Amino acid sequence: MPAFVTRRTVRFADCDPAGIVYFPRCFDLLNGVVEDWWAEMGIPWRVMIPERAIGLPTVAMAANFVAPSRLGDELVCTLTVVRLGGASLDLRHSVAGDDGVRFRAEQTVVCTALATNRPQPWPDDLRAAVTRYLESDHAQHPAA
Rank of each mutant, 00 (worst) to 15 (best):
V81K: 04
T131I: 08
F103V: 07
P123C: 11
A87Y: 05
R8Q: 11
S136L: 13
A63Q: 02
G97T: 02
F23G: 03
L89Q: 04
M41G: 00
T112R: 06
T112W: 02
G100D: 05
F23S: 10
Y22H: 09
E35R: 07
V82M: 12
H138G: 02
G19C: 03
V76Q: 12
A105T: 11
R46L: 13
L75E: 02
V34Q: 04
V95Q: 05
A128E: 14
W38D: 01
I54A: 09
N31I: 04
D16S: 03
V66N: 06
S136A: 15
G97S: 11
V81N: 01
N64F: 00
T80R: 08
G32Y: 00
D16M: 01
R83G: 00
R127W: 13
V5I: 12
D90C: 10
T78S: 14
T116A: 02
G19I: 06
R102I: 11
D99Y: 01
V82H: 11
D16R: 06
A3T: 15
Q140H: 11
L134H: 10
V21N: 03
R118I: 03
S94L: 13
D14G: 07
H141G: 00
R25G: 02
F23C: 09
R102A: 13
R25C: 09
V5L: 07
C26H: 06
D36G: 13
L71G: 07
C77W: 02
A113C: 12
M1R: 10
F23M: 04
A143G: 13
W37Q: 04
A87I: 05
R52F: 04
P68C: 05
T58D: 10
L79E: 06
L126M: 12
P142Y: 14
V130T: 11
D99G: 12
V82A: 09
T6F: 03
E106R: 15
D137A: 15
R132E: 12
F12Y: 11
C77N: 03
P2R: 14
V95G: 07
L30Y: 00
D73E: 08
P68E: 05
T58P: 08
L79W: 02
Q140M: 15
N31K: 11
R70L: 03
I49R: 02
R127L: 12
P68M: 07
C26M: 07
